[in-house]
Amino acid sequence: MKKDKRYGMVIDLDKCTGCGSCMAACMAENNVPFREDESNKLLSITWMRVYKLTNGKPFPETDVCYLPRPCMHCGGQHEGHSPCVSVCPATATDYSLKTGIVSQIYTRCFGCRYCMASCPYHARYFNWWDPVWPDGMEKYLNPKVSPRMRGVVEKCSFCFHRYQLAKEKAYIQGRRELAEDEYQTSCTQACPAGAITFGDLNNHKHSVYKDKKNPNAFRLLERLGTNPKVYYISSRAWVRRAGDNYLRNEAKPAKAVQHG
């Protein structure tokens, strides 16, 4: 089984409570900065963002669903042709064919923001300001993830540094393969509802492999051909339909297209 890995997520929206632990766990793990006013969400860096969806019906038929959105680590139509990677002029974001992870190289990014324009998920964030931590708070910064400088773009990395640490550890122990639980993202680990599962979508031993085949699984904006590696599960039809755009009279959404 020498197949390349395609790390991905399955997020069970029936379980997700919208509590936001994943957002905070991501910020804590990845040294995401914060400012005095974070209420303008168009200027607020949240690699993981939990959206609140409503079904648009009046009281008391109203329904709400929460949808956590990390970077989708899009593969594109031919693996590697992610919307954002293909446009970056300086190769500051890259697609790893080994892991399927879309990286972001902060020290190479020169801040043209083309990648942001290309990402339909708004998963990319620009550092409009210098990151500033209040006196003393730099103490909690994680040395495994470098804080970003002003003027560059950042986004969810699937906690790539955790992959590297796990690989190093395995290598020292003379192993090549990582077990499913050796590499888990911070948000997955933190989620108190256990709504997020993470693993290799190509590996039939990992739970994501099975979960993505759930009849209620879908991905966001599949029709654009972005080929995301984050799957969602919802038993509510309106939520599944909210995952993509449909013409008014279009028939029921097709089932999730399986890639790989």
Binding site: G20, Y140, N142, A190, P192, G194
Partner: peptide
């Protein structure tokens, strides 16, 4: 330096989970 708080695996209350207040 303390750099991260995570839920304790195997704890009878939360078994590895943590809330956003706890993680912050």
């Amino acid at each position: 330096r303390a750099i991260k708080i995570e839920g304790m695996k195997g704890h009878p209350v939360n078994d590895g989970g943590i809330c956003l207040l706890g993680v912050s």
